[in-house]
């Protein structure tokens, strides 16, 4: 049997990349969807000690009763170690109990700032957006107060913009030295950006996005072409190890057998 899967989907690739980015025994604040699949995959492989936290209140549940449809749904509470409400979850985050947060958005800029509020002109067009998005939810709180964040994005030029319409969840702001500290934030900011094409991080000096690894089927050029701003391309960019047969089996058979999140078509 071959080691690597030959029929993995873009979502499965994101899940595998997200899972491998997580570190055992860390507390991970999770959103609905692919992040939950990634956390569960990590728990079943290299990170059995990962502690998921859900913003509606559940800390350290077992995700063995089916994938939650919501971060407030009953499936997030099964065998939880602590369970109150939103204030308690965000207070934990603000205090420093949450090592990583998984967030996303409709668009991102080179400094890891994310928009999930509105497309259109801001602030003058705030009450007449071109497209209204759902809003921050807890993402902006996670972006500020989790120690690090892992950002998941669909990789398209229109979603990677030098300037975004609205900063919902702050990354490194304008990239100036200590911008987050000076703004009053507690957490250190974006750690990785995981997309359908690449794994990226941020330059220590400029805080601009840099390519770390290309995903299977992609090249440095194809990733840059799908990015609406210039990426920093270091010399040591590498090809990310493809999903293994075992990882894909776990996703399909154990974690998301109904295909709620993984088989769902990524919106183009």
């Amino acid at each position: 049997m071959p080691k690597y899967s030959e029929d993995f989907t873009p979502q499965e690739m994101i899940v595998v990349a997200g899972s491998r980015t997580l570190i055992d025994n860390k507390v991970v604040f999770a959103g609905t969807g692919l992040p939950m699949v990634a956390i569960t995959l990590a728990q079943l492989t290299h990170g059995p000690g990962i502690v998921p936290v859900f913003e509606a209140g559940a800390v350290g549940p077992e995700l063995s009763r089916g994938l939650p449809l919501s971060v407030g749904g009953s499936r997030t509470t099964y065998k939880a170690n602590y369970l109150l409400g939103l204030n308690s979850a965000f207070e934990l985050t603000q205090r420093g109990f949450c090592d990583f947060g998984f967030i996303g958005g409709a668009e991102i800029d080179p400094y890891g700032n994310l928009n999930s509020t509105m497309m259109g002109s801001f602030p003058d067009g705030y009450n007449k957006p071109k497209t209204r998005l759902p809003g921050s939810g807890g993402a902006s709180d996670m972006a500020c107060s989790c120690e690090r964040t892992i950002i998941i994005m669909v990789h398209e030029p229109r979603r990677f913009n030098e300037k975004i319409d609205y900063i919902t969840s702050p990354g490194y702001l304008d990239g100036s030295p200590n911008a987050r500290w000076r703004a009053g934030m507690a957490g250190q900011g974006p750690y990785r950006v995981i997309t359908t094409k690449a794994i990226m991080g941020f330059d220590d000096e400029t805080k601009r996005m840099k390519l770390i690894a290309t995903l299977p089927g992609e090249t440095v050029e194809s990733v840059q072409e799908a990015t609406g701003f210039k990426l920093i391309i270091p010399d040591d960019v590498y090809a990310f190890e493809p999903p293994t047969v075992e990882e894909v089996r776990l996703i399909r058979e154990v974690i998301d057998p109904k295909g709620y999140f993984v088989r769902k078509k990524i919106k183009e």
Binding site: P123, S136, D141, A143, T168, S169, A183, G184
Partner: peptide, 12 residues
Amino acid sequence: CRSPLGSDMLKT
């Protein structure tokens, strides 16, 4: 509250 400092939400 310590979040979301730096966000555009604070402008409106």
